[in-house]
Design a protein around this nucleic acid. Structure first.
Length: 205
DNA sequence: GACGTGATTGTA
DNA sequence: ACAATCACGTCC
């Protein structure tokens, strides 16, 4: 069968609230050192821009860490958190306007052996990319992947999926600010969707 | 439920 | 300078 055409930049040049649900069922393909891993997205979260979304990394303006969010659409924004995890977003909206979609979970459909070797703690196939840091690890993303183009026909692509089934939405995971906004989207009933965890209510001293 | 781990940011 | 926070995962 013919090789599918990757999602064009125009796909990402829209509001994250539109892009996020549209990404469900699409496939992230990353080839690294001749090894290909493909993840079919089952869960994402939309993050709006500067001054619009208190939960977004971009909310308080451009910094070295989050600068990619202001770049052109269709690029990968990777950040490091909790001293040990990487998480990946896809940048949305025109250059100069921040916003993106956090890749929260997916199903590894190609290269499961490679993905598992990157995630030795995983117990079952469904938890290899179940959670944003797990997904980033399974795809082999790190600091050096921040800013990479996913529409340039290179070793990192987003391919159209074969449908997402029923899409559900609800509050974002671990987010206190803006918790009322139902900007997490997932495929109903998919076993790779991560467990919902409310924001920790702010540790008391 | 506790805790790791370090960058980042707000406060002083 | 210092302290709190953090779009999380793992093990108890």
């Amino acid at each position: 069968m013919p090789e599918p055409t990757p999602l064009p930049r125009s796909f990402f040049d829209r509001d994250p609230l539109v892009v996020a649900p549209a990404l469900l069922g699409t496939v992230i393909r990353h080839s690294q050192a001749g090894q290909v891993v493909e993840v079919r997205l089952t869960e994402v979260e939309a993050y709006l821009g500067e001054g619009e979304d208190p939960a977004s990394h971009s909310h308080r303006g451009k910094r070295p860490r989050n600068a990619t969010m202001w770049g052109p659409p269709g690029h990968l924004y990777v950040y490091f958190t909790y001293g040990m995890h990487y998480c990946a977003n896809l940048v949305c909206r025109p250059e100069g306007i921040s916003g993106g979609v956090l890749l929260r979970a997916g199903e590894v459909i190609t290269g499961l052996d490679v993905a598992r070797s990157r995630r030795p703690a995983s117990k079952r196939d469904i938890d290899v990319a179940q959670g944003p840091a797990r997904l980033a690890s399974a795809l082999g993303f790190g600091r050096e992947d921040d800013g990479r183009d996913v529409c340039g026909g290179g070793s990192l692509l987003v391919l159209p999926g074969s449908g997402a089934g029923k899409v559900m939405s609800g509050p974002r995971v671990g987010v206190a600010a803006g918790a009322q906004s139902p900007w997490r989207y997932w495929i109903e009933g998919d076993p790779t969707v991560s467990a919902y965890r409310p924001a920790v209510p702010r540790r008391r001293r």
